[in-house]
Amino acid sequence: MKLPLHRLRAVAACCLTALGVGLAVVTFWGSEPTTAGGHDHHPTVPETHPPVDMDRIVAVTRCPRPQEQGRAADYRQVVCQSPQGRYTIMTFTTPAGKDAWLDAAEPYGGTYLVGDRWAVVSTPALLGELRAELGGEIREHQHHGP
């Protein structure tokens, strides 16, 4: 049985499409990645930190008497003086609230350790120590005032 050339092309195109879709599915839902040697089946676990809230931050700063400076529906602010130094700690109900606060604070300058829904203001050295415990990102802003 001979197939006309245009039918042969259609069958070949269908087969190649099915093969491509199959490879895409296997790649997307396939097994865990392996190393170049193909023998190491230990998945890489990203570095994780416990959830960060006000109590955890205060505990990590070893602040003996945190003083609440503000509380509203969308944020909480605590200032603490620990033996290591002074911290201003902010927690927010949403990441958008944190971002808005950081935008408003930027003109004043300073160094911030920033997480998903929290920020800590202190010296770069103290924030570096906190970052090891809490995670987050250190951001520095220059003062833009007179």
Score class of each variant (00 low, 15 high):
12 A>C: 09
48 T>M: 15
108 Y>Q: 15
48 T>Q: 15
49 H>Q: 05
60 V>T: 11
83 P>S: 07
53 D>I: 07
127 L>I: 07
58 V>P: 00
135 G>C: 02
133 E>T: 00
14 C>D: 03
130 L>N: 05
3 L>V: 03
12 A>V: 12
132 A>T: 10
57 I>P: 00
47 E>M: 14
85 G>W: 06
110 G>T: 05
69 Q>T: 15
108 Y>N: 15
73 A>H: 07
42 H>F: 08
117 R>H: 01
109 G>L: 08
70 G>K: 12
106 E>W: 06
80 C>D: 08
120 V>T: 01
75 Y>D: 03
26 V>R: 14
45 V>G: 06
108 Y>L: 15
20 G>F: 15
36 A>F: 06
117 R>F: 02
45 V>W: 11
141 H>E: 15
113 L>A: 01
5 L>A: 08
80 C>K: 07
129 E>V: 09
73 A>L: 08
40 D>K: 09
117 R>W: 04
33 P>W: 12
105 A>S: 14
65 R>H: 12
142 Q>C: 00
115 G>W: 01
11 V>P: 00
102 L>G: 05
104 A>W: 10
56 R>T: 13
101 W>Y: 12
47 E>A: 14
139 R>W: 12
138 I>N: 04
78 V>T: 05
112 Y>F: 15
17 T>W: 09
112 Y>S: 09
55 D>L: 05
138 I>C: 06
115 G>R: 00
129 E>P: 03
104 A>F: 10
97 G>S: 01
124 P>A: 06
28 F>V: 05
144 H>W: 01
136 G>E: 04
103 D>M: 03
107 P>G: 10
2 K>L: 06
74 D>S: 07
65 R>C: 03
140 E>P: 03
41 H>D: 06
80 C>M: 07
1 M>D: 03
27 T>L: 06
31 S>Q: 14
93 T>K: 09
115 G>K: 01
91 T>V: 13
140 E>N: 11
100 A>H: 12
13 A>F: 13
5 L>S: 09
119 A>P: 03
34 T>P: 02
83 P>F: 03
123 T>I: 04
118 W>P: 04
105 A>V: 08
43 P>G: 07
114 V>T: 13
21 V>P: 04
132 A>F: 09
48 T>K: 15
18 A>W: 05
15 C>I: 11
50 P>A: 05
39 H>G: 11
120 V>F: 00
36 A>K: 10
52 V>W: 00
109 G>W: 08
87 Y>S: 06
81 Q>S: 10
66 P>Y: 03
23 L>S: 14
48 T>A: 15
58 V>Y: 00
146 P>N: 08
1 M>F: 05
37 G>W: 08
34 T>K: 10
82 S>V: 00
31 S>H: 12
130 L>W: 04
35 T>C: 05
41 H>M: 09
36 A>Q: 13
31 S>P: 11
63 C>K: 02
57 I>D: 02
34 T>N: 04
73 A>F: 08
128 G>Q: 01
91 T>S: 01
24 A>Q: 10
135 G>L: 02
39 H>V: 12
51 P>A: 11
41 H>Y: 02
115 G>N: 01
39 H>A: 11
6 H>A: 10
64 P>F: 01
41 H>G: 03
146 P>R: 10
65 R>T: 13
13 A>K: 07
116 D>E: 10
26 V>T: 14
95 P>F: 01
42 H>M: 12
89 I>C: 08
91 T>M: 03
122 S>P: 04
61 T>S: 05
74 D>I: 09
